[in-house]
Design a protein around this nucleic acid. Sequence first.
DNA 1: ACTGGCACTCTGTCGTTACGAGTGCCAGAG
DNA 2: CTCTGGCACTCGTAACGACAGAGTGCCAGT
Lengths: 340, 340
Amino acid sequence: MSLDDRKLEVLRAIVEDYVETQEPVGSKSLVERHQLGVSPATVRNDMAVLEEEGYIRQPHTSAGRVPTDAGYRLFVDRLSKVKALSPAERRAIERFLIGAVDLDDVVHRTVRLLAQLTRQVAVVQYPSLARSSVRHLELVPISTTRLMLVMIADTGRVEQRLVELPSPVPPDDVTDLRRRVNEKLAGQKLADTPPLVQGLVDDCSPDSRATMACLASVLLETLVERSEERLALAGTANLTRGGVLDFQGTLRPVLEALEEEVILLKLIGDLEPSTTRVRIGDENQIDNLRSASVVSTGYGPGATIVGGLGVLGPTRMDYPGTIATVRAVARYVGDLLAQN
Amino acid sequence: MSLDDRKLEVLRAIVEDYVETQEPVGSKSLVERHQLGVSPATVRNDMAVLEEEGYIRQPHTSAGRVPTDAGYRLFVDRLSKVKALSPAERRAIERFLIGAVDLDDVVHRTVRLLAQLTRQVAVVQYPSLARSSVRHLELVPISTTRLMLVMIADTGRVEQRLVELPSPVPPDDVTDLRRRVNEKLAGQKLADTPPLVQGLVDDCSPDSRATMACLASVLLETLVERSEERLALAGTANLTRGGVLDFQGTLRPVLEALEEEVILLKLIGDLEPSTTRVRIGDENQIDNLRSASVVSTGYGPGATIVGGLGVLGPTRMDYPGTIATVRAVARYVGDLLAQN
DNA sequence: ACTGGCACTCTGTCGTTACGAGTGCCAGAG
DNA sequence: CTCTGGCACTCGTAACGACAGAGTGCCAGT
């Protein structure tokens, strides 16, 4: 049994009404609020079919219908078109993002903007190191046996690590180290560096070899192994909108999930397709987020993607609006990064 | 009318029971659970006095008593001694903090540790720039008209900013700039730098003056004006412990406050006295945190203080335990920083 | 294929009642 | 003067039943 156009129209109406009112929607109020051109009884028949197919359900006998995850999914895929942003929103985005002075600033402004526009929890991933190149490596002597290694990536990210040296190294040798390291690594993709770092050690004269080996291990750790992804988060207070009705009673599991960077990265950091991705309820494989949806997308200068951003909210969410906003913000941020 | 010893003992018992059970405590259960050596009726009389003095109150007629903010205050100031940490806790702290590789790592581990031990929301301020000295300034050419300025502070903090130059500058001149800037500023307290930066511009030859002025303005901004304090936060999920009973119904205002860095800094960043500070309910002047208490202290290598840390929870909180934990963690972190 | 009508089911609300915890007060004992 | 036991009172809460309202499913009719 396939769903004819009117049944789909009914589903759309249910989703829209439910998102707006947060209350199960019945056949009568449906025909009142939408021009469906049929009677409540007909709508009821359609609803019975939709329920059988798993797109809607009744919380109790004799309450209205509520969309299921599958219902939202169908709505998102086939029934909604992306809303255009209002001029006010466009202006808000621009106003918010101009004037950012460095990467931290860009990320923080973006995440706050996103939370504010969507009125949901926003997450922004810093440009991924895995997709960056080395712009410059700096070695700063802290003491004779300690260096601070500073890595500046082309995306603007800066990572630093302390290096404990096996033996004292005079300043001139540090200069030499710095030159050698940069000659070899500057401009390279981080992912390509491991063999090059090994090469650095191999090419070393025996007397400076121990030092370089030590530096190399920290380099590898910084550039690759522990190439830690960073995140910014904002708008957690938005979880409390709509009472505790969303999220089935407690915010607890959601708040817990939001504290796990690993989880968040899984949600927004999966950057394969460059299109906007929507994960509804169970679709994001995380128990704690059964009643949450995530809208995410990649961003980056031009067509390349260097990181992900997105928002998290109740499954009962304004998908068209949220999708539009997430996309728009991602594009603006990409443009901003392209200017550097 | 002053409070005799037994009345104080009654207050202590009320606070302890209420913190544990989260329910208003009556005269009968009080004498059952504590060896007060008097009858419920006597306790009732004492409670009437305590209520008149504003230390406890009844949610409704014929419910037990609940401590007021003033009651908690008295309890903290005069009735409780700091609990000793269990060996297990000590071990947890050590295990958690060894192995931290850089400042970011230290701060993140600390904030998570604190949240876990106290089972509350933890806040850690990064070492304040205002109390740091410049260890090194690095200038990295991005293009001929762009430099990246990287400032490394003695506390391990690293700040970076982009500098747009008025005219192209060749690499050799950058080396020269770097030397001049470091000669003047390295080792100086950030707070003392403004006149020195001005001096740098004044001492400049006319042809490089424009460049230096430009650099100087960014320097000033980075070092002083926008010497932004950074924070780490963890354990927000702990707010949901004890149901929504704490925080009078909604977490909303609390979550909102936690998003405002300015507010958090006011709470934990006020470092005048080096002792642990407890702010109960109204005492922290923030409307949104009427029903929250904050326990905070400063930390730093040795006796100096470079930043603040603390926890936030319901006024109904285990003060002695929390205070002990916050102090212990602060001391461990200080020791850790002293090793650098 | 759609519609109007009707019986049914369930939830939420409202008043009533009964109960229990806890109090304040008072008179009496040490 | 302080403490205690007793007693009447208050008030929130749980339990109960009745009721109204929303919404449904089904069926016969157009």
